[in-house]
Amino acid sequence: MKKFIDEVIAEMKKVSWSTKKELATYTGVVGIAVAVVCALIWICDTFFARLFHIILR
């Protein structure tokens, strides 16, 4: 178990961590992408709901 922990610590020292600025930028990009995808889904859902309402009326 000690060998495993030592190897984990050694690997974690090799990790390249993001800076706070990079993290904030990436978080913003993800937030915008989620908003765009949500808007597209909402538009498609509204379109098909109205289409089916017209067809089934």
Score class of each variant (00 low, 15 high):
4 F>N: 04
18 S>D: 07
14 K>N: 15
16 S>I: 12
4 F>C: 02
41 I>Y: 04
5 I>P: 00
20 K>Q: 12
8 V>L: 15
54 I>Q: 09
48 F>C: 01
26 Y>I: 06
38 C>V: 11
37 V>Q: 01
40 L>W: 05
4 F>W: 05
45 D>P: 00
45 D>H: 07
9 I>A: 14
30 V>N: 02
13 K>H: 07
20 K>R: 14
33 A>V: 09
18 S>Y: 06
33 A>C: 11
29 V>A: 08
19 T>S: 15
4 F>D: 12
21 K>V: 14
5 I>S: 10
8 V>C: 14
56 L>H: 14
10 A>L: 07
41 I>M: 09
7 E>D: 13
35 A>H: 03
43 I>D: 02
18 S>W: 04
22 E>H: 02
12 M>A: 09
46 T>G: 08
49 A>G: 00
41 I>G: 09
55 I>K: 04
45 D>R: 09
20 K>Y: 11
2 K>A: 13
34 V>Q: 06
7 E>Q: 15
20 K>E: 15
36 V>S: 03
56 L>P: 01
43 I>S: 03
33 A>D: 08
46 T>A: 10
24 A>M: 09
15 V>C: 03
47 F>T: 08
41 I>L: 10
15 V>D: 02
23 L>K: 12
8 V>P: 00
53 H>L: 02
47 F>Y: 07
14 K>A: 01
47 F>D: 01
34 V>P: 00
51 L>P: 00
42 W>L: 15
33 A>F: 06
18 S>E: 14
27 T>D: 13
38 C>R: 05
14 K>G: 00
14 K>W: 00
36 V>Q: 01
53 H>M: 04
50 R>K: 13
30 V>W: 00
18 S>H: 05
14 K>S: 06
25 T>I: 06
37 V>A: 10
44 C>G: 15
17 W>N: 06
21 K>F: 11
9 I>C: 05
26 Y>K: 12
44 C>D: 05
6 D>I: 01
47 F>K: 02
29 V>N: 03
3 K>A: 15
15 V>L: 15
6 D>H: 12
24 A>I: 10
24 A>Q: 11
57 R>P: 04
48 F>S: 03
19 T>V: 01
4 F>M: 14
45 D>N: 10
12 M>W: 10
28 G>Q: 03
43 I>H: 01
52 F>S: 14
19 T>W: 03
36 V>F: 07
38 C>W: 04
21 K>A: 15
53 H>D: 13
57 R>A: 10
40 L>V: 14
51 L>D: 01
3 K>R: 14
49 A>N: 11
2 K>H: 12
56 L>Y: 13
31 G>W: 03
23 L>H: 09
45 D>T: 15
52 F>W: 09
40 L>R: 04
2 K>S: 12
56 L>N: 15
19 T>F: 05
20 K>W: 03
28 G>L: 02
45 D>L: 07
39 A>P: 00
13 K>W: 01
19 T>Q: 04
11 E>Y: 04
3 K>Y: 08
